[in-house]
Design a binder for these strands. Sequence first.
DNA 1: CCAGAAAATGGAACGGCTTCCATCCAGTAT
DNA 2: ATACTGGATGGAAGCCGTTCCATTTTCTGG
Lengths: 344, 344
Amino acid sequence: MAGIRDVARLAGVSQATASRALSGKGSVSARAREAVTAAASELGFVMSYHASSLASGRSHNIGVVLPFVNRWYFATLLEGANSALMDAGYDLTLYDFQGDRYRESVLGDFLLRKRLDGVLAVSLQLNAHETEQILAAGIPVVGVGGPLPGIPTLRIDDVEVGRRATNHLISLGHSRVAHLGGEHEYGRNFEISSGRRAGYEDAMAEAGLPLRAAWSLISGYSANEAYRETKHLLADAAERPTAIFCASDEMAIGAMLAARDLGLRIPEELSVIGVDGHEMGEILGLTTIDQFPRNQGTRAVERLLTLVQGDGDAVEPADELMETRLVVRSSTSAPRIPAGQPGS
Amino acid sequence: MAGIRDVARLAGVSQATASRALSGKGSVSARAREAVTAAASELGFVMSYHASSLASGRSHNIGVVLPFVNRWYFATLLEGANSALMDAGYDLTLYDFQGDRYRESVLGDFLLRKRLDGVLAVSLQLNAHETEQILAAGIPVVGVGGPLPGIPTLRIDDVEVGRRATNHLISLGHSRVAHLGGEHEYGRNFEISSGRRAGYEDAMAEAGLPLRAAWSLISGYSANEAYRETKHLLADAAERPTAIFCASDEMAIGAMLAARDLGLRIPEELSVIGVDGHEMGEILGLTTIDQFPRNQGTRAVERLLTLVQGDGDAVEPADELMETRLVVRSSTSAPRIPAGQPGS
DNA sequence: CCAGAAAATGGAACGGCTTCCATCCAGTAT
DNA sequence: ATACTGGATGGAAGCCGTTCCATTTTCTGG
């Protein structure tokens, strides 16, 4: 296996010049550069990643930490991040907490091995100790979703999202509006779930509408869990809401299926709105607040890379608010409760 | 930042002994080991990943190559692989082709940087040149899905899967059975799609049933694409099949939604069966051939790690057939075509 | 044509750990 | 007690680029 030494020898230059020519840093004459390039390709030279990293301290490797690869939002954000990283020539090391199963080992061991140039932390909330630990490693970190104190973050205004979704329903004429929120475990998703819930409650209060405890549910973010909760919610016809705001599209999908299985027509008997912009929303006719997760992934990487490559004196705004968009489809409409059903 | 030198000095042993004590390789007395461990934790020593890799040639890092992170099957397989790798103390570097967008750069650049101990190639078909290239890098590779010549592979019997799914429908009394197959692009998924299609055709032929060109469709693996194809397929009532075998659960979901949107009841007017074991199948009542993708991921990692860690003389069987299971739910039943519809 | 600045280049010192090899020592068999 | 064996240990040579620094070459302007 040819090393840079061999390349230098064949090109008739020093190892130092060969290194400069190949990395593009430092000044090298055109003639030398060509000689080196030619020698390298002739020998089929591939630079040793480890040697290069050891010597330069840079690994061209970004860690992405997220709670689930298996949820659409995260997978899509990951895809965006992956794109941006590939384009920049970086590798992506994936750390999937799988709930909280690997939280400790990731935070405690993996992230500290000094093998990453930067970390993207998605929907992750750190306690003081963890924040300190990760910052002590001296690695640039960018967060997505939920403020991480001391760390630049990309997020959407979850309160506003909740308010907007709820207001959409209210403006259609609904007064019996339920909310199916995501569970907010300590250290994960907390701000997101509670923000959207707060938006819901705000909007209801502003419209002078009652908040019923029975209409305020919590479930996991998956369609299956939401399905179960929704079936429960809709079981009692007398207490049935006419609209439901779900904290994610996957939950909304579960809710729609539950409603259909109970024989309720959407949107006539139940309006459903979600959040995310799930690709299946299109064929389901799901009204949603799109948050463009793919775009969040690429944007987060952009910011992270400026930190990684930056001179350190680039003063970035600590927080960046990402765009969302209400996409109205056929899962929401004015309430049209069939005869025989109780009115509001 | 403390180095192993400092640890050794504090523990009163040589650097060599400290290294052995920390890595567990070579023989070290209990006393020395304890001294080193204590010194290490006192200094908050974290080993330099790059230095270690450079010296040992081992990176404790596995690359996972797949065509989409964003499809349920792949995300779930990835989750399984991630689990197994975390448990073994390995990092996971993700290479998402995103269709074919990054195929070349992954295969040409990223994989060759000698920074991986092994590669897991999922649903990937390599041409001779690519195979040669990747094997020349001297990295152990394990494939999942579709045979890769010269590379140990994990797969399911796709022909058998197609046959079993189709026979399930036939045994329920269907004779008008359509197949919605995945697109098989060169280099990706080829064997999978064509295997399942072959199984379908076999089963139909064995049962003496006609194969109509109009009932043999191709679509992308996503629900959205399948939705469109299925709507097309079902548009003409006279030519309508009574059952449809979809090459993936996501496609089956699209098909179910298309049928519902056309006012067709499932399973009365259309039976649907998929492949994968998608978690949403439960709430959709989707009959499927479960292939336990999470398990495939962990098993693939197991095999890969034995190759990576192995003495090289472990003769593994080149191919391993993974288990599948028919899960019957409510999306399939005997055909019960309502009055007014044309019979078979 | 020359001083001075900028560009190009080579030597060599790292970066931080692993591992080969030689040495030493305690335990065991004779 | 002696020879032998295998465990424990330290010295030092890598692993393979990057980059600092000093030196040489080339270019610019006066």
